[in-house]
C-alpha cells in the first residue's frame, strides 16, 4: 500500500513540475492520468519494493553527493588522458564481487561504476561484475571496494547495524 501511495505522490509531483499550467480542467486531466497509471501499474503487479524504492530515499542525497565528487575526479583524469599526447592508457579487465544483498543494490552498483568515466561494467552475472577500466590504476581503485561498501550502506534498511566485512 505504501508503495502504491509513494508511486502516486511521485507521479503527481512529476506531473505538477513538468506541466506548469494550473487550470482546473488541466489539473483534473493530470490527476486522472496519474491515477490511471497507478491503477495500470497495480494491475500489472509491478508496484513493489524494487520499483518504488522508498527505503533508499533518505540516503540517496549523500550518496549522490559522493558519486558526484567521484564523477568530477574521474572526468578530469580521463580528459587529461585524452588530450595529452602519447599513449596514456592501459586497459584492464577485472572481476569484482558485488556484495549487495538485493538485485536493486547490484544494479545501483553496476550503474555507478558505468557512470564514472574510466570504468564500465561489461557484464553482471550472479553477483560478479566484469569491469573494463581505462588504466590499471583505475582497476586497482575499484578493487579497493570503496564503492561496493557505500552502495551496501545505501541499501541497508533503517536501524540495521552497519555490516563491515572485509571486501576483496
Amino acid at each position: 500500500m505504501r508503495y502504491l501511495l509513494g508511486l502516486i505522490i511521485g507521479a503527481a509531483t512529476l506531473w505538477l513540475l513538468l506541466s506548469g499550467v494550473y487550470k482546473p480542467i488541466v489539473l483534473g486531466l493530470g490527476g486522472f492520468s496519474v491515477l490511471f497509471c497507478a491503477y495500470v501499474c497495480h494491475r500489472m503487479g509491478i508496484v513493489d519494493r524494487e520499483s518504488v524504492p522508498l527505503h533508499l530515499l533518505a540516503r540517496v542525497p549523500l550518496y549522490a553527493l559522493w558519486l558526484g565528487g567521484e564523477i568530477a575526479k574521474s572526468n578530469w583524469d580521463v580528459a587529461k588522458r585524452i588530450v595529452l599526447p602519447g599513449r596514456r592508457i592501459s586497459p584492464t579487465i577485472v572481476r569484482l564481487r558485488a556484495h549487495q544483498s538485493s538485485e536493486l543494490g547490484q544494479a545501483v552498483f553496476a550503474n555507478s561504476i558505468t557512470l564514472t568515466p574510466g570504468t564500465v561494467t561489461v557484464a553482471l552475472r550472479s553477483g560478479d561484475a566484469i569491469v573494463h577500466a581505462i588504466t590499471a590504476d583505475n582497476a586497482t581503485d575499484m578493487e579497493g571496494g570503496d564503492m561496493d561498501q557505500r552502495v551496501r550502506r545505501l541499501e541497508r534498511p533503517f536501524g540495521a547495524p552497519a555490516r563491515r566485512e572485509a571486501s576483496q
Partner: peptide
C-alpha cells in the same frame, strides 16, 4: 568528441563517450 576519435578500440571509446555524457 576528440577521445571518440583518438581511442584505439571500442571499449576505450566508451570511456571517452562517458566524459561527454556525464561531465
Amino acid at each position: 568528441g576528440i577521445g571518440m576519435l583518438r581511442m584505439p578500440d571500442f571499449y576505450t571509446r566508451m570511456h571517452a563517450a562517458s566524459v561527454t555524457d556525464t561531465g
